[in-house]
Simulated assay, not measured.
Amino acid sequence: MTTHISTLGELLTSAGTQWRVYDIGRRITKIDKKQFDQIENTQVPYPYPLGGHALMAIQFWDNQATLDPYVWFLKFPLDEQSKLNIASRDHFASMVIEALGTQLTGEAAQGKLDNNPYVYTPNANKLAAFNALMKCELKRPASKYYETVEQYFTSHGQTDWQSLALQGLADYALRLAHGQNQANLMALWSTLPAQVQSPLAAMLEHVSISTELTEFLQTQLHAHLTTDNLAGAINSFRAMSGSHGLGLIAQSVDQLLASEQSLEADILLTIAGRGWETLTEPDRLYTFMDKAAQNSQIEGLFESIFADLVAIPILRPHVLGLLRAQNRSETLSRAIGRLFS
């Protein structure tokens, strides 16, 4: 391998590895190689920007490897159009070549990139969810913490919830199709202590759950909104947000925006962070941004949500369209005016 490497894909392939790429900024989502090549060549913007960066996990392994794959957790800056900063990518690639040469795997590679400025450590929730997903994709056994969680749900919560580990909850979330796992989850969901329901929801948002479970969680969401249970409503929405049932998620966003809790910062931030795909519908986006403009709990909330959503390629034209929208509410017009003051 020479230093004439123009993309990370070339670097990994030239080193004789098999590899996969995932976005882990918003929701853990696989990025196929064709799309990743287009991203690296700035032909398309990064699809899931977060805070002006691409947060990705690159999993790779030697063709003869018997050990678990290696993973780079990387954070690269994006430009104002959410396209990859090529200079940063090239800098990372050159540092890899300098540190590792042609040997990206094996004991000699361990720890060589610990101080690399583009390597970062995801939060505990993302790490647990990613680890659980990798074990499923590689058909490896779940972690040693899984059985305790499975027993907790099998016994309908009769065991001590304090014995449950985050990694075990992640493994359970990725294995809902096993045995009675989904049925047991649905039976126990509404009575789960917050210390279990909240981290479990954080795991489920990375899972393409079944339509049955999505509909169940939508019913739970409605019930929590009716009883003014903000935390329960947010957990139910987070847990369903990774479902392929986008119509059900859109209905749930509409329920949240029509509720008395719609101005709550936690509701607005949850929709922006987990339900952004539903905001391509102009009326829903307008309602959402109008609610954000009315929020007075957090100074600068509207501006931060606007900046977050306008960076997402599928939303950018719709969010920019708000700047030209006629008949905006006075509150929304003032909030948009603050963007330019």
Rank of each mutant, 00 (worst) to 15 (best):
S6N: 13
L8E: 02
L11D: 00
T13W: 00
Q18E: 12
I28Q: 00
I31Q: 02
K34A: 14
D37I: 07
Q38P: 02
Q38E: 11
T42G: 01
V44L: 12
P47W: 09
P49Y: 12
L50Y: 11
A54Y: 12
A54V: 12
M56G: 02
A57P: 01
D68T: 09
D68L: 15
F73C: 06
L74F: 08
E80A: 14
Q81D: 11
K83M: 14
K83H: 13
K83F: 15
N85L: 15
S88K: 10
S88I: 08
D90F: 11
H91L: 15
A93C: 15
S94G: 11
Q103H: 10
A108E: 02
V119S: 06
T121D: 07
A124F: 10
M134W: 03
L138Y: 11
L138A: 14
K139P: 05
R140M: 14
R140H: 12
S143N: 06
K144H: 13
Y145T: 04
Y146C: 13
E150L: 14
Q151G: 09
S155V: 00
G157A: 04
L166G: 02
A170L: 04
D171G: 05
A173F: 04
R175L: 14
Q180K: 08
N181G: 10
A194I: 08
Q195L: 14
S198G: 08
S198M: 09
S208P: 03
L213S: 02
T214Q: 04
L217W: 04
T219N: 15
H222D: 13
N229Q: 04
G232E: 03
N235G: 06
S241M: 05
G245M: 13
V253I: 03
L256Y: 04
A258K: 10
S259E: 07
E264R: 14
T270E: 06
T270R: 03
T280K: 08
N295K: 07
Q297V: 04
G300R: 05
E303R: 07
D308R: 07
D308Y: 10
V310W: 06
L315F: 03
L320Y: 03
L322I: 01
L322Y: 00
L323Y: 01
S329N: 04
L332W: 00
